[in-house]
């Protein structure tokens, strides 16, 4: 137990109820509630430190790189809206994923908030680890589309996976939304 040392104490302090905790000196300018909040915020690193100790049973997984609400995405088409948003340094944020799970994968439709507007987009590349033969990109790429499925831009200069040929034709409806126009504006398939 000695090797756990301070980290174990920190955890015990963190998970014991507030009234049992010794009142430590509050930081300058912090009230009681804020003091507890900062303490709580310091608990997670303590637990993580404990997890990295030898012989610890706590298990923390690495970043999953899910595409879900609040995820920042990269627009890869040459639409004016997308280009200006990326140049400004305010990339679009996902606010809804159009599937049951809420976690977006390559080819899924998402709703993004971009420059104060809500726009639909198709995920053309994910940073998450993929199955064999599916390309994994260094950034989470999207192509902005309107309600009919036609893209806002005229060209995609970044490679997109061939899997989208199958996925977008499946998503499209005859006499309805047609997502396959994205395939027409793509320059390179991977």
């Amino acid at each position: 137990m000695e090797r756990w040392g301070a980290s174990m104490k920190e955890i015990e302090r963190a998970i014991s109820p507030p009234h049992e905790q010794k009142k430590s000196k509050p930081k300058e300018g912090l009230t009681g509630a804020k003091e507890r909040w900062t303490e709580a915020m310091n608990v997670v690193p303590a637990i993580l430190r404990a997890a990295r100790c030898e012989g610890s049973r706590l298990h923390t997984s690495s970043s999953l790189r899910h595409i879900q609400k609040q995820t920042r995405l990269r627009v890869v088409d040459n639409s004016e809206l997308g280009k200006s948003a990326m140049l400004e340094g305010r990339p679009p944020r996902c606010i809804h994923v159009y599937n049951k799970k809420g976690i977006g994968r390559t080819g899924d439709k998402v709703l993004v908030a971009i420059k104060g507007q809500k726009k639909q987009a198709i995920l053309t590349g994910c940073h998450q680890d993929q199955f064999p033969l599916m390309p994994k990109f260094d950034s989470n790429n999207i192509v902005l589309v309107d309600e009919n499925g036609s893209p806002l831009g005229t060209r995609i200069h970044v490679p997109i996976p061939t899997f989208l040929r199958k996925k977008l034709t499946e998503m499209s409806r005859p006499k309805g939304v047609d997502y396959t126009k994205i395939l027409a504006i793509a320059t390179r398939f991977v």
Partner: peptide, 17 residues
């Protein structure tokens, strides 16, 4: 890195594809 986009693909060595 193709067209300034970094990408990786995993291959299974014995896959018949």
């Amino acid at each position: 890195v193709i067209d300034h986009q970094g990408l990786e693909i995993m291959y299974e060595m014995y896959s018949p594809l």
